[in-house]
Design a protein around this nucleic acid. Sequence first.
DNA 1: TAGCTTAGGCTATAGGTATTAGCTGAAGCT
DNA 2: AGCTTCAGCTAATACCTATAGCCTAAGCTA
Lengths: 206, 206
Amino acid sequence: MADIPDRRARRRAETLEEILAIALEVMAEDGVAGLSLSAVARRLGIRPPSLYKYFPSRHAVYDALFERGQRAYLEAVLRGAAGAEPGLAAMAASLEAGARWVMANQALAQLLFWRPVPGFEPSERAYAPALAVHDHFTALTSAAIERGELHPDAASEEGQALGSSLIAGLLSQQLANEPGAAFEEGRFTRWVARLPGVLAAIYPPR
Amino acid sequence: MADIPDRRARRRAETLEEILAIALEVMAEDGVAGLSLSAVARRLGIRPPSLYKYFPSRHAVYDALFERGQRAYLEAVLRGAAGAEPGLAAMAASLEAGARWVMANQALAQLLFWRPVPGFEPSERAYAPALAVHDHFTALTSAAIERGELHPDAASEEGQALGSSLIAGLLSQQLANEPGAAFEEGRFTRWVARLPGVLAAIYPPR
DNA sequence: TAGCTTAGGCTATAGGTATTAGCTGAAGCT
DNA sequence: AGCTTCAGCTAATACCTATAGCCTAAGCTA
């Protein structure tokens, strides 16, 4: 009773997970915008309309994936910083952890950061973790400034814009040009570890 | 006779142009991957199958747009550099001209640089101008090095990777976050003019 | 000018997609 | 034991790309 509080709900949750996992498979094969509910249903062994018992629309599937993706990315970025000395070292660790996550979850990353699906706009709820990621990097920047590793201007709006563009640029280039390369060998990902140094060169302390 | 060498061919070419122009409109409204030949036919006032007299497939339309886009971008980038002093000044002018082109042709730029259409791979012919763009920026870098504005390492593979990531990052962030902003006001595009300075900070001469 | 060719439109059709409506059997609850 | 509800189903609508084949008029040629 308390052991199996709601059998049906559990089975339902399992099926839901299965659907999302298959959707990721399909996206990895056919591209993010190429996700087809019919293909998902086929692989799951049911008819397409039955999927609508779980998600009200194709966009709802994207939204669920978007939310899980943002959460997972946030967690990766936070865990990356956790073990490191605060300041630029933590920033380097966090950026690298995030970049590794992106390279390991390319289809999902494209959905999160490039919005390649025509009519899809994530819900506020799904977008929330992205704000936490932003706050996290703002905090890392502030810590680096306090430690005298960066000029205070690095925390300005323009500094944040440049910082986010740096990592976004490296990853978008890596995904577009060498999606299969290992993190250590990627022409672009190899720069990730040096990104805090780049930032320090542009915003030298004092 | 020599005046109107082939009337039919001219009309055909006109219709072809019209189709591509409408396709751009549709892409701007419904997203790059949301291009529908039926919508194009509807706006042109013909039935969808008639479009196949002009293009053998939807991908062929993308390919024609891709080629024209690459050509136009190449021209923008070359013209930008043309009036400027060689070296970093020319690089700044060229980057800015390219960035302005991207912001003015967002749908096309997404097709060119982000490949958001599931099965679409541009033909070699359509891709050719992209190689010229690459060569152009390599030449600009070399000139800057010769003038003592950059360290020779800027011409290395890793230097080129960073340079292309810098501009790609700024533009992808601008398009994703403030697609409607004017070039001068964009939080990210405002960095474009300072990009050569950034490069010089990372690869200081001597 | 008369006749032939063909480009560029059309309809019909096949097979794919998302989505809605409504039926049904069985699982689970009371 | 009976009731409820859930999770599947089929059928149908309204799109989409793409192919096959018809038909007309524009344009070329004898």
